[in-house]
């Protein structure tokens, strides 16, 4: 078993709240190390510090790696590499869209993110830019609420952080 093979396998572990996206595409897995043939350490970086899905994800990652024959798996949480929504892969963005969530607006992380960009979120249903932010808080810590003035639908977006 090699590190790339383990990462490949971790694509089978999905975000418990958004079942179309894997923890790898979400950018949560920040490091995978093989300490020996039967010991693997997976480092994860949480999307939101208070995310209630974190414990479930830790457990699911552990089970997934054990499922491919690794005897000892440690999943550690670290803020060494802080999670940002720019860590979500292209495949991950497509998966969010498939779930009906607008992917987070990509931003230049060398300058401070201005939250006014939330008003420039394209509608996940019709693609229109004629949308407005209804609330920066939604049904999960990572989501905001929007409304599309073109197709007259309310929608949710994954927040840029």
């Amino acid at each position: 078993m090699t590190v790339p093979q383990i990462i490949e396998h971790l694509h089978s572990v999905k975000d418990p709240e958004i079942p179309t996206i894997s923890v790898v595409d979400m950018g949560i897995v920040s490091k995978v190390e093989m300490q020996s043939l039967d010991r693997v350490v997976v480092t994860i970086t949480p999307t939101f510090v208070g995310c209630p899905a974190l414990e479930v994800m830790k457990r699911n990652i552990e089970h997934a790696v054990m499922g491919i024959g690794i005897k000892y798996v440690d999943v550690i949480v670290s803020y060494d590499i802080p999670w940002s929504s720019n860590r979500i892969t292209e495949q991950g963005r497509a998966a969010l869209l498939k779930h009906g969530l607008a992917p987070p607006v990509r931003y230049d992380d060398t300058v401070e993110l201005q939250l006014d960009v939330l008003n420039e979120t394209p509608c996940p249903f019709c693609g229109s830019m004629k949308t407005i932010l209804k609330s920066p808080f939604g049904p999960a810590l990572c989501r905001s609420l929007h409304y599309c003035n073109n197709c007259l639908q309310a929608f949710e977006s994954f927040k840029p952080v």
Binding site: F48, V49, G50, P52, S135, P136, F137, G138, L141
Partner: peptide, 14 residues
Amino acid sequence: DIAFSSIAQDKLGH
């Protein structure tokens, strides 16, 4: 309602 609840959840996480 959702905003204050979400903020509370974030703060508790912090």
